[in-house]
Design a binder for these strands. Structure first.
Length: 420
DNA sequence: TCTGGGGTCCTAGGACCC
DNA sequence: TCTGGGGTCCTAGGACCC
């Protein structure tokens, strides 16, 4: 019989902060989103204080101060590196691993000879030993059930490992909102016809699920009943889209500032594309007016423009030109813009060198070399060491806040932990 | 004052074609 | 007066995920 395990890091970002700062142990810790806007990770102590996920920071500032909660800005360099260490450890102990997100992996246990429970406990121990990150392990016959098992492991079992059978009595009191694939809308729709628990949902008619929630709903039901519809995914060969978008620290009214912002985002997009060795055929540039304080008569918030590029590219210079031109056309005076972004689609592999009648190969080669040199310098000395003039010199007043970022302990020599 | 970012998949509906 | 039907492709938008 084939089994799936879901290994999920507990309070991942908060645990990463703790791994290098023992003073944080047993104290409430939270991590904020970009722009220090919302709370996106909480240690158990912080959860116990009633601090909810996704809450704006300013709403709970006094509560945080009152309980001496330790606050951090997101430090993605640190989290990404810690994630890689956790995944390496898992791959050393299981042949079939699907890295599902930065803090989760599915394992397929068909060849596991030991007891499943014991195997889970060993995994937990070795990951903690190698990385300092605590994980929970859920095991079941389908991925959807393994996700649920992991939820139970976190909430209800001291050992952090749970083996779940489709007929487990705990499912008759477990809310459907905990099921992987059921969000707010589906929870409400199911609630309207009296389905609130997982056990209740397991009784639903397959034909009704198919009709009401499409193939996704049907698969979800089958998985809950123990019939596997999702296998381990092979490693992604490349994303379909790549996006860079950011909120501004304050509303922007001026075209020049918007163009500067989109140039910075286009530069980041170029870096991403080049890192994945991809080139984009299509770009979507979008602007958001502030939805919380909309100053427009028509109330519109979203403005976007699609572009087909004559040549697939990952060249920053080209991306900036297209993006800035799109912003000029989208811009309307008097609108308070809060966010902008750039999405690359139609991605092709490699394609560093593209020529056409107007830009000769020699010219392209020179561009490519210049960009390559720029990437190298920025990797070594930090982003924004070399940049395009249209991106401004970084002294703007719109870019994000990052007040409490911890050192990048594992990826920057100058920030390595010092032990006295 | 202050409200995240980056993805995927599916479906409905329009355009177009024969 | 009577005014087809079925297929494909594309896009926008909704739902979900972490």
């Amino acid at each position: 019989m084939k089994y799936y395990a879901l290994v999920d890091c507990n309070n991942f970002y908060a645990s990463c902060e703790r791994a290098f700062q023992p003073r944080l142990l047993n104290r409430p810790v939270i991590v904020l989103s970009n722009n220090d806007g919302c709370i996106i990770a909480r240690s158990n102590e912080a959860k116990a204080l009633g601090i909810e996920m996704g809450v704006p920071y300013w709403e709970v500032r006094s509560l945080l101060a009152e309980h001496n909660v330790q606050v951090f800005s997101s430090n993605y360099a640190l989290y990404g590196d810690m994630s890689a260490r956790v995944m390496d450890t898992l791959q050393q102990h299981c042949i079939e691993v699907e890295v599902y997100s930065i803090d989760e992996a599915f394992l397929q246990l068909s060849y596991c000879k030991q007891g499943l429970q014991q195997y889970g406990e060993q995994l937990r121990q070795v990951v903690h030993q190698n990385t300092g990150i605590p994980v929970s392990v859920g095991i079941a016959r389908t991925k959807t059930l393994a996700k649920l098992a992991n939820h139970i492991a976190k909430q209800q079992t001291p050992g952090g490992v749970y083996l779940l059978h489709p007929a487990d009595p705990r499912l008759s009191s477990l809310s459907i909102s905990k099921v992987w694939g059921i969000g707010k809308a589906y929870e409400q729709k199911l609630g309207e016809i009296g389905i609130q628990t997982v056990a209740g949902l397991q009784q639903a008619e397959e034909s009704w699920m198919r009709q009401t929630f499409g193939v996704v709903g049907l698969r979800l039901l089958k998985e809950l009943k123990g019939e596997a519809c999702y296998a381990l995914e092979p490693p992604a060969t490349g994303r379909a889209h790549t996006m860079v978008s950011r909120s501004f620290r304050r509303d922007i009214y001026q075209l020049e500032e918007l163009k500067e912002a989109i140039s910075v985002y286009a530069s980041r997009l170029g870096e991403k594309l080049r890192r994945y060795r991809q080139a984009a055929n299509q770009l979507t540039i979008f602007l958001w007016a502030n939805p919380h304080k909309n100053r427009r008569a028509d109330g519109r918030c979203y403005f976007a423009m699609n572009l087909e590029l004559p040549l697939a590219t990952s060249n920053t210079n080209t991306l900036i030109q297209w993006a800035a031109a799109a912003v000029e056309r989208l811009y309307e005076e008097g609108t308070n813009y809060k966010k902008a972004g750039i999405l690359a689609g139609g991605l092709q592999p490699g394609a560093v060198l593209q020529t056409n009648l107007f830009v000769g190969e020699q010219q392209q080669l020179r561009y490519a070399k210049a960009i390559e040199a720029m990437d190298r310098v920025n990797r070594q000395y930090g982003r924004h060491t070399v940049y395009f003039a249209s991106c401004g010199n970084g002294s703007n007043t719109w870019s994000r806040k990052e007040q409490w970022r911890s050192p990048r302990f594992t990826t920057r020599w100058e920030e390595v932990l010092r032990v006295k």
